[in-house]
Design a protein around this nucleic acid. Structure first.
Ligand code: MN
Ligand code: MN
Ligand code: ZN
Ligand code: ZN
Lengths: 146, 146
DNA sequence: GGCCAAATGAAATCGAATTTCACTTTCAAT
DNA sequence: ATTGAAAGTGAAATTCGATTTCATTTGGCC
């Protein structure tokens, strides 16, 4: 880790040490606020900006990437070997991943057709998860809250 | 149009008349700001909030939907019969659409597997369009600007 | 015409993201 | 070990699109 940073010209600091570890230990898809809370349980002197900057840095060195679901909060997740898509529950905000190798093999030819240099592929299914649907049956019948 | 609004309990107003028309005449993927500029060329007394609310309303009555690409600006586009994905150029922000019926037929079984109630499917290819790549060859060799 | 809920526009507010800035720390070269 | 330039830090300020507030106006129905 220290090496990875040094080779790219960044310095290691106690804050980064802690934040990086916390990020790797955290579950998938953490927001800055999520990680900030986790981190400050261990060292409450660490600032929000440092957490934010560290997450950006983790992306820069290629260990993570941003996940934007359009709900106003940027999440971060480790880069995975296999590309995956997301099932995103609009009600409980839960994310579930699914394998998308087969979809990637459909997307790549499309990019080629348009002579597009691919930097990232995104596939999402937005809707209601099973738990939320069940929960909704016992209350309102509309589904989403507005 | 007037009918569509009335049946859903909304009133028609000169502002809506103008904004709706401008939206339908505008190209694909307009932001509030885009449409606001277009509209105020015709009637400069129309407020930004009214344009914003009208776009939301157009979505509510089912004629359009929001498109969020994670660049901080919400765009709006007419609902199309055929589902389509987007090629999004990170440099010039241009959007190109592609047919994704075949991808939808892969996504639907996935949703079913997870007993997920689908509200929307999203497929995006982020990267550099042909024009931007060409343009970049004549200047820097890195690609994206930071 | 008159009512009144809905709509409007300007301004205020919200909130996540990002930047600023004065101060501190890292680390490579002494 | 010392040290100084460059990089990092934390608190606060700023940004900026999205959204709400509120006083006033208007559309649709009697
Ligand atoms: Mn994921
Ligand atoms: Mn489109
Ligand atoms: Zn859910
Ligand atoms: Zn481009």
């Amino acid at each position: 880790m220290r090496e990875l940073l040094r080779t790219k010209g960044y310095k290691m600091t106690p804050q980064r040490e802690l934040i990086f570890r916390a990020f790797l230990e955290a579950g998938e898809h953490v927001s800055v606020e999520d990680l900030y809370q986790r981190v400050r349980e261990i060292d409450s002197s660490i600032g929000y900006s440092t957490v934010w900057r560290s997450l950006k840095l983790i992306c820069t060195v290629g260990l993570a990437k941003e996940v934007n679901l359009g709900d106003g909060v940027t999440r971060y997740e480790r880069i995975t070997l296999q590309p995956h898509g997301h099932l995103y529950c609009l009600q409980c905000k839960t994310l579930t991943e699914f394998e998308m190798a087969n979809i990637v093999s459909l997307l790549e030819p499309i990019a080629r057709t348009y002579r597009f240099q691919v930097e990232g592929l995104k596939c999402e299914i937005h809707g209601l998860c099973e738990e939320c649907r069940k929960r909704n049956q016992n209350t309102d019948s509309t589904g989403l809250t507005h």
